Amino acid sequence: MQNSHSGVNQLGGVFVNGRPLPDSTRQKIVELAHSGARPCDISRILQVSNGCVSKILGRYYETGSIRPRAIGGSKPRVATPEVVSKIAQYKRECPSIFAWEIRDRLLSEGVCTNDNIPSVSSINRVLRNLASEKQQMGADGMYDKLRMLNGQTGSWGTRPGWYPGTSVPGQPTQDGCQQQEGGGENTNSISSNGEDSDEAQMRLQLKRKLQRNRTSFTQEQIEALEKEFERTHYPDVFARERLAAKIDLPEARIQVWFSNRRAKWRREEKLRNQRRQASNTPSHIPISSSFSTSVYQPIPQPTTPVSSFTSGSMLGRTDTALTNTYSALPPMPSFTMANNLPMQPPVPSQTSSYSCMLPTSPSVNGRSYDTYTPPHMQTHMNSQPMGTSGTTSTGLISPGVSVPVQVPGSEPDMSQYWPRLQ
């Protein structure tokens, strides 16, 4: 039975679970980093996980050691009161100082060594604690504590007292930064006198190289990059290397530039699409467009005044059976039934097929058609009795279509119309 579990990581490298990497692998990681390889490249070359490479390099940059820390136990506290007071002093002298600059000053002034120097995250935590204590304490208590930490007896009751030896409130920041720059020169002199001055200088240079600022491109470089971006948004590694040799930039910087440029292009394309949609959409909808001609068919113009009344309900007709019959029939052209047409008796099958359309009241044959006459024609229609054979009435077949029909004066039988409509 094995005491430890061995495995293979996602890159194909072998590791022992819970145990640190061998010293030979750690040394190779540092050597590759000094030669300029990126952590992701080191991870692929040595088949070590990216997190492990970053952790080893980060500890090497901070402490200069590649040895693993002790497994188990607690780390001794490195942010001692003396170190905290120095950090507060540096922050007062130059409020814009960075944590890694404070760390360098602690090393250069001999406050800490490589073994007990606090990390950048520890210094940031100390600065946050100082800021929170400043908010919790009152103004007087804060000034007393700062005077105690600074070891001075001057008056701290006013704002300019934060910067000793100065009279203009805006000047101390520059003086403090100048003092810090002077301390940086002392850093070089002190570290050069040490035993491991060369190694420390190499480590600091490598650290500065990794902690780079934003790349500033010249106009020629920007023009070359934009020209390549117009050709393709995704250049391959050969195109990037050719462009890197042409404009004297690292291939990694060119790759990052193209990634950022593609993101910018997507944002601009989104804005262009929004403007295009806004320009195509009308600002207001016309009133006429809300009524579609496919839904509402136009009603033909009436030929006679009587045809303006298109349904039985508008003429005072309360018989719903006839109203439904007229509205359900398709529109037909106007025609006239003459008196000489043969009077065919209704076929029983045809009569039964339209039995649902006729009223059940037996008085329908005896009703006159003056009910369908509009009010303004009552006088004219009353002067001509319906009993004469020459009287013409208008029957409504569908809305908007008038059918003048000659009705025999002897017997106005409704059943004569249905064979004609089939």
Rank of each mutant, 00 (worst) to 15 (best):
Q2F: 11
Q2G: 11
N3S: 12
S4A: 13
S4N: 12
S4P: 14
S4Q: 13
S4H: 10
S6R: 14
S6A: 12
G7N: 13
G7P: 07
V8L: 07
N9R: 03
N9C: 01
L11H: 06
G12T: 02
G13H: 04
G13D: 01
V14R: 15
V16Y: 15
V16P: 02
V16H: 14
V16E: 06
R19E: 03
R19L: 05
R19N: 03
R19G: 01
P22W: 02
P22T: 04
D23A: 11
D23I: 14
S24Y: 10
T25F: 04
R26C: 01
R26I: 02
Q27H: 11
I29L: 05
V30S: 02
L32K: 04
L32C: 04
L32W: 03
A33D: 05
A37Y: 15
R38Q: 03
P39F: 04
C40F: 03
C40H: 04
D41N: 07
I42F: 01
S43R: 01
S43N: 01
I45D: 08
Q47G: 05
Q47E: 01
S49R: 01
S49V: 03
G51T: 15
V53T: 00
V53C: 04
V53R: 00
K55V: 07
G58Y: 12
Y60I: 00
Y60S: 02
Y60Q: 00
Y61T: 05
Y61A: 10
E62Y: 05
T63K: 04
T63I: 02
G64Y: 05
S65M: 08
I66H: 07
R67A: 15
R69V: 05
R69T: 04
R69Q: 06
A70N: 12
G72N: 05
G73F: 00
S74W: 01
K75E: 03
P76G: 00
R77I: 02
R77E: 01
V78W: 01
V78Y: 03
V78A: 04
T80G: 04
P81T: 08
P81H: 07
P81M: 07
E82T: 14
V84E: 03
S85N: 12
A88M: 07
Y90A: 09
Y90H: 14
Y90L: 13
Y90R: 04
K91V: 03
E93R: 08
P95G: 07
P95S: 10
P95R: 15
S96C: 06
I97A: 14
I97L: 13
I97D: 08
I97G: 15
I97W: 09
I97H: 08
A99Q: 04
A99F: 00
W100P: 07
E101N: 09
I102H: 06
I102E: 04
D104L: 14
S108F: 11
G110W: 10
G110A: 09
V111E: 06
C112R: 07
T113R: 14
P118V: 05
S119Y: 02
V120K: 15
V120W: 00
S121T: 00
S122D: 04
N129H: 13
N129S: 06
E133F: 09
K134N: 08
K134D: 08
Q135R: 12
Q135K: 13
Q136C: 08
Q136E: 12
Q136H: 10
G138Y: 14
G138S: 12
A139S: 10
D140E: 07
G141I: 14
G141N: 09
M142P: 12
D144S: 11
K145W: 11
L146V: 12
R147H: 14
R147P: 15
M148P: 15
M148F: 10
L149H: 13
L149R: 14
N150W: 07
N150A: 14
